[in-house]
Design a protein around this nucleic acid. Structure first.
Length: 816
RNA sequence: GCCCGAGUGGUGGAACUGGUAGACGCGCGGGACUCAAAAUCCCGUCCCAGCAAUGGGGUGUGAGUUCGAUUCUCACCUCGGGCACCA
């Protein structure tokens, strides 16, 4: 036995896969000529954060699913561009760097290196010539440029906002670093709120468009739904309550029909009118309460215990509907960020107001009579009519909304208002590991944007990137860095020392990919026009709101500024499912993390890829278990065996095999199109089973298979298992070529349809017989045959047929 | 609390617009090959009764619509995901 025959007879994925990795690189199989491509197809996948732990099965699952789609499109004749990159800025990297006490600028390149090698072993059709890394100055120069473009377009503003502050670290904490109100690094030290001046992108100005456009996008319903909820549009009214000094206190409500039941008013502790409305004798109590509320960290304030607290201001305001005066309270269940930061409390018809009114013994006045009997207050329903509401009594809730809003509007005490839950996007981070925000503060010229020609504002490689006792962000400790000349007046000025949010880096990376060869512009307009918007974006729903919303927003603003020709970046988006292990999310603490390298090493990348795609519907995910993977390997072994038995001189394929082939082509094509990869794979398995039955298992020369049956199999397998498919393709006589330059097989509809069907006969809903007939059989004929079936006869004998239902080519249903 | 999604054999999962429930794979049982084991191959595998033909039951629970429901409607239970004092 020679080496070659050993290699040929046994499928060794290690040999096959390394051979094709090399050839793909040598032949530049995965590259696309972006300028000359005639059928451009941008196949995007969510670029990973290159963690120190290395590639995760979740990453592989996501990428392989997208890669299959890209390879499939390529086989269909598209010029597929499948780039990948690394999202390496941000708190995640920074915290890890702090933990292992190594500078992120050293850590990240090593992580990226490792990630890239791991990714290459997976066999993705990635064009690595267009890799991006958000930490590369050649990239973040343009992230800063985008900030400037938004600044110029009036989409950016600076305002105060609360952050989590640890008095021990003397630094800002991200929400993830706060555990139950305590600092994660200092157990026992309570985190509190601190108000800092920060940069915001005014995404709320685009809330309505971001919501409206959703209906036009070909996106997963779940993702669109999450975005719509996140935007959180609600319709209602702004009503004016007035203090004795005639100061208006506007409130937002979705239920203006209940204004007659508003028995008190509540302001958020941060509300600017608190000072003014508080009576002298209450100043102390109110002051204490405000201080307490502000001391709670942002996380606890939002999700902490819901026990209602509050304090009376000692003054009253006039209810615009009843004319009565109602007490003004301060309570932290009212949020400054939503509506007007003040509410009219209607305890009879709102759970929170009810709880508060009960606790502080405030008046509860019912003003809605429910139509369906509901006994206990609070009554929350739209299904009722107004009572105790003066001239509006008897109107339905919805009628009362319009009538009362209109009535108050005439008196200048109210108007309709649409409110969104979406908040402006705070992009300031008091951190080190991010692109510096390109702003300069000058005493004379105030806030000055860094001129474009001065970009990038380089992030200095400082050694003390750690937060310390000084109480300022790391960059703010480096005078040699932040001291600059004002670009306007030339006097000494100071750089902004905050860096921008990682989500800004990832909000435009897809625009950069085609233009990585152009260092003089963020994105080349010809290439952008040619390749965008992205035809297919596949990723996880964990990014359904933040990343996908921000990417849409940035694109929309760039569109309005005339910089791109489309306002939505992703024509089609599909959210893949998640892989869990033993029914639980994988995590280091649970110790159930599946490391892809081990599996790829043992089984091969092709087997691993296919197994991940086979274990559940791609759009739903599934449970990773070791048990099933051998089945995929056996399948690939069988395919390998079939190819070995090819014979071009064999007789033409028989009709049965041909039908099976065409049915398989139809199923696999449709399934890949719909991302139903698990069923596509089972269709391939069924076809292979048919071929093996034909083949006589290769034992005799005479029974070898015709290559007409095998070539389409190899092509259809290629998106799933690219390496072995290339090897098989070569063995089928296509030396020097890639299977990915072949064309996807088409099916003959007539051949793909069955020539004999099984017609089911039911009697009273139970299956009593099966008829084997040709498709298209006439009803009368079918019923006649059905009645003649012995199994049917047994159940119809002596009874009269009351009804006969015939469904073409499906069944005959008899009722006796 | 609100908004999505899902509950099917021992197991992962299949079933197009209501029309043969359990494809494909794993596991398991039996057999072949082997001195033996592994690998490979063949047969079987939803449950109950029966030697069999066949009959009955069966897609989380309970009702409903229908000749017919895993699929549609209502109520409920369980699990997963998202949002959460949003007025």
């Amino acid at each position: 036995m020679t080496d070659i025959s050993t290699r040929d007879s046994v499928y060794d994925p290690g040999v096959v896969e390394s051979r094709w990795r090399e050839r793909w690189e040598d032949r530049r199989t995965n590259g696309v000529d972006l300028a000359s491509a005639s059928r451009p197809y941008f196949n995007l996948m969510m670029f990973p954060y290159p963690s120190a732990e290395g590639l995760h099965v979740g990453n592989v699952f996501a990428f392989v699913g997208s890669d299959i789609h890209g390879r499939f499109r390529r086989l269909q004749g598209w010029n597929v561009f499948e780039p990948l990159g690394f999202d390496a800025f941000g708190i995640h990297s920074e915290n890890f760097a702090l933990k292992v006490n190594t500078h992120p600028a050293k850590l990240i390149p090593a992580n990226i290196e490792r990630f890239r090698e791991q990714l290459k072993r997976v066999g993705l059709m990635v064009d690595w010539d267009h890799e991006v890394s958000t930490t590369d100055p050649a990239y973040y120069k343009w992230t800063q440029w985008i900030f400037l473009k938004l600044y110029a377009a009036g989409c950016v503003e600076k305002k105060h906002a609360p952050v989590n502050w640890c008095p021990e670290c003397k630094t800002v904490l991200a929400n993830e670093q706060v555990e139950d109100g305590y600092c994660e690094r200092h157990p026992g030290v309570r985190v509190h709120q601190k108000s800092l001046s920060q940069w915001f992108f005014k995404i709320t100005d685009h809330a309505e468009r971001l919501l409206q456009n959703l209906s036009m996008l070909d996106w997963s319903d779940s993702t669109r739904n999450m975005q719509a909820n996140w935007i959180g549009r609600s319709e209602g009214a702004e009503l004016i309550f007035k203090t004795p000094a005639d100061t208006p206190i506007p409130v937002y409500t979705t239920r203006p029909d209940t204004v007659f039941g508003a028995t008190y008013l509540v302001l958020a502790p941060e509300h600017p009118l608190v000072e003014e409305v508080t009576a002298n004798e209450c100043k102390k109590a109110v002051g204490n309460y405000r201080r307490q509320a502000l001391q709670k960290d942002v996380v606890t304030r939002r999700v902490g215990d819901r026990e209602k607290t509050g304090v009376f201001t000692g003054t009253y305001a006039r209810n615009p509907a009843t004319g009565e005066t109602v007490p003004i309270w301060i309570a932290d269940y009212v949020l400054m960020e939503y509506g007007t930061g003040a509410i009219m409390a209607v305890p009879a018809h709102d759970e929170r107001d009810f709880e508060f009114a009960t606790k502080f013994e405030l008046e509860i006045r019912q003003v809605v009579e429910p139509s369906d009997r509901e006994d206990q207050l609070p009554i929350i329903t739209w299904n009722g009519s107004a009572i105790n509401s003066g001239q509006f009594d008897g109107l339905s809730c919805t009628e009362a909304v319009t009538a009362i809003t209109g009535w108050l509007e005439e008196q200048g005490l109210g108007r309709k208002r649409v409110q969104y839950r979406l908040h402006d996007w705070c992009i300031s981070r008091q951190r080190y590991w991010g692109p510096p925000i390109p702003i300069i503060y000058c005493e004379q010229c105030e806030t000055v944007p860094v001129p474009e020609e001065d970009l990038p504002v380089l992030l200095p490689e400082i050694e003390d990137f750690k937060p310390d006792e000084s109480g300022v962000s790391p960059l703010a400790r480096h005078e040699e860095w932040y001291r600059v000349m004002c670009p306007k007046c030339g006097k000494l000025a100071r750089r902004e020392t905050d860096v921008s949010d990682t989500f800004l880096d990832s909000a435009w990376y897809f625009l950069r990919y085609p233009s990585t060869d152009h260092n003089d512009r963020a994105f080349d307009s010809d290439l952008t026009t040619k390749w965008l918007p992205v035809q297919s974006y596949i990723g996880g729903n964990e990014h359904a709101v933040l990343h996908l919303m921000y990417a849409r927003y940035i694109t929309m603003v760039l569109h309005d500024a005339g910089l791109v020709g489309f306002e939505e970046p992703f024509t089609r988006f599909r959210a893949h499912g998640t892989i869990v292990k033993d029914g639980a999310k994988m995590s280091k603490s649970r110790g159930n993390v599946v490391v892809p390298d081990e599996y790829i090493g043992r089984w091969g990348a092709d087997t691993f890829r296919m197994y991940l795609m086979f274990l559940g519907p791609y759009l739903e995910g599934g449970d990773f278990r070791d048990e099933g993977i051998s089945g995929i390997r056996r399948f690939l072994d069988k395919v390998w065996g079939l190819i070995r038995d090819t014979d071009e001189d064999a007789d033409g394929p028989d009709r049965k095999a041909l039908r099976s082939l065409h049915q398989t082509i139809r199923r696999v094509t449709d399934d890949i199109e719909g991302l139903h990869y698990n069923t596509a794979i089972s269709a391939l398995m069924e076809y292979v089973n048919v071929l093996r039955a034909q083949d006589g298992r290769g034992e005799t020369e005479a029974q070898r298979l015709n290559s007409d049956l095998l070539e389409p199999l190899v092509i259809m397998l290629a998106p799933f298992a690219p390496h072995i498919s290339e090897e098989c393709w070569e063995r089928l006589g296509h030396e020097g070529m890639s299977v990915f330059d072949a064309s996807w097989p088409s099916y003959d509809a007539a051949l793909a349809s069955v020539d004999e069907i099984e017609l089911v006969v039911q009697v009273n809903g139970k299956v009593r017989g099966r008829l084997h007939v040709t498709p298209g059989i006439a009803e009368s004929m079918a019923v006649e045959l059905a009645l003649a079936e012995p199994g049917v006869k047994r159940h119809t004998e002596g009874k009269s047929i009351r009804k006969a239902v015939y469904v073409q080519d499906r069944l005959v249903s008899l009722v006796v």
